[in-house]
């Protein structure tokens, strides 16, 4: 059981978290833009998250919190 939380308004859509996720569950939310004007990163299939925190470690903007 693990969960990642994105502080979406800090996200700049650089996609480094998308690339680094071993479960390939981090996606860019094409359906919305944040207050910086970017499509933010998000996770929909949260049940697949293993809480490895790779996304958070790779994120240059400290957008992501991880719970396990």
């Amino acid at each position: 059981m693990a969960r990642v939380t994105f502080n979406e308004d800090l996200c700049k859509g650089c996609k480094l978290c998308v690339a680094v996720c071993p479960k390939k569950i981090v996606k860019i939310a094409e359906d919305r833009i944040n207050n910086k004007g970017y499509h933010p990163a998000t996770v929909e299939e949260m049940d697949k998250c293993i809480g490895c925190a790779f996304c958070a470690m790779m994120c240059p903007d400290v957008v992501i919190e991880v719970e396990k």
Partner: peptide
């Protein structure tokens, strides 16, 4: 919030 460009590793 940091002002760096998207994907810049300064933030890391």
């Amino acid at each position: 919030p940091m002002h760096y460009c998207p994907g810049c590793t300064h933030g890391i």
